[in-house]
Nucleic acid binder design. Sequence first.
RNA 1: GGCGGGGUAGCUCAGUUGGUUAGAGCACAGGACUCAUAAGCCUGGGGUCGGUGGUUCGAAUCCACUCCCCGCUACCA
Length: 514
Amino acid sequence: MPEKNFYITTPIYYPSGKPHMGHAYSSIIADVFARFKKIDGYKAYFLTGTDEHGLKIQREAKKNNKDPKKFCDELSITFKNLTKTLNLSNNDFIRTTEKRHYDSVKEIWERLEKSGDIYLGKYSGWYSVSDEAYYDEEEIIDENGSKKSKTSGSKVEWVEEESYFFKLSAWSNKLLKFYQENPKFILPVSRRNEVVNFVKKGLKDLSVSRTSFSWGIPVPSNKKHIIYVWLDALTNYISALKFPDTENKLYRDFWPADLHIIGKDILRFHAIYWPAFLLAAKIKPPKRVYGHGWILSDEKKMSKSLGNILDPLEIIKDYGVDQLRYYLIKEVSLGNDGSISLENLKNCINNDLANNFGNLCQRVFSFIDKNCDSKIPSPDKFNTRDKELSDEIIKKISDLKYMIDNQELNSYIKEVINFSFNSNKYFNDLEPWKLKKTNKVRMNTVLYCILNQIKSISILLYPIIPSSIEKIFDTLNLKKEELNIEQIKNLNLIVPGKIIKKSNILFKKIDNDN
RNA sequence: GGCGGGGUAGCUCAGUUGGUUAGAGCACAGGACUCAUAAGCCUGGGGUCGGUGGUUCGAAUCCACUCCCCGCUACCA
């Protein structure tokens, strides 16, 4: 029987600033998929990390009078801490300053050089020293004989720099063929169309080395050059699998990657450069790249000047990590930009988590505590209504898996929280508080059924709000190993007679004046 | 400018190949209940489906024109 393996990654983050909501969002999305696969019987490998080379870092390090590597150690730590704060289930954390990554990049470079996909040429253009940027012919203006940038107004000069190039131009047609043969390589579809149109217009060769700074991986055959950005950064996805050792178990099990989660801003690099590099190096490209949208604050990009920054660490401190995770997954449409606000966050927490699912757990646990001696009641036969309730979830399992496999997270979470709505209704309709006076056997059955629902909903919510769900499992005396999609079908998992452990309120309601 | 996506209840959005009184959640109003985090359940109000014209027995759904909004249009990640 073939193993069910799943490899998912986040972008590696450039640590020139502190972690923001965009980083948190990418990571949370990836974690939800990783955790789902892990409880669905897959051997899942989840990678995140930091991209630490480049001029910006080199300069910052110098400014702080620090060795670049030492400087990166400090920066990288804040991102590593973020994985803990967000409760990510990542299996590894890669840094582009590690030896394993150097080895991997070196190998890729040599393969590309050998295959003739890399050549030495000249990179030229209008360069502004103060902006540290090259400008296009259309982006500059001639003012009294001196050329200036239209946007910044700073002086530009014609600069020619020796540079290695990757023959990207030769890959246009092969890429188009690849997109056609793998229609879901780029998602969402709207992004795919953008990329395809872009490639159809023809690709230019890509500069892949620089001589203007030194903080990076040197070109093996020419130490004057540093391997530039994407060839360095993207390779992390295979460095972590011990490439170039393609015979080791990690690489054999997990490459090609199943899913790269990225922001739409770096889609092109992942959807064009990355498969081109890999194809040229005779390595299989990943199976899918998903470009999610941006998180906006009150319809606008977050910025210091607008004063609308929502800091993930602050929000987690004030509201809780599961609360933030749930909110971002539920309220932001994956693939589209989404506006978030504290107001919406509070509503979401109160409605879905506190009033709906949290209160469902609370009313049931508390009822059992008071009326069943705190012990899980023993059920009699399930009647039609009981079966309808549990069947509703069981019948949806394959649909839910399909949604996850197609990154339809919003549909997924809506279906799942809907089970909680229906469970509340069941509890209301069957009125166990009346049954306790008239029919205790039936009351016990109803309570057991509702516990089953809580268990099943919990399993499905686990990828999104893992730590809260672990608490529920603990309350129900269920083991971590039983946190598995398969157990939804098992209506006898919960053991009657065991004590329901005392639990605190799972999701506190947020006051308006808070 | 070019290519693409979208304009549906106060807000966020679903609406399959055109077919009976256009849906959900939130918000709002009323009702019955009381196990629970004053939570949950039931009922209700509210939309000329961006505009105009057309195809059709019949269009939010197809066609034309028009007005808005958004994305992409290469080497900062």
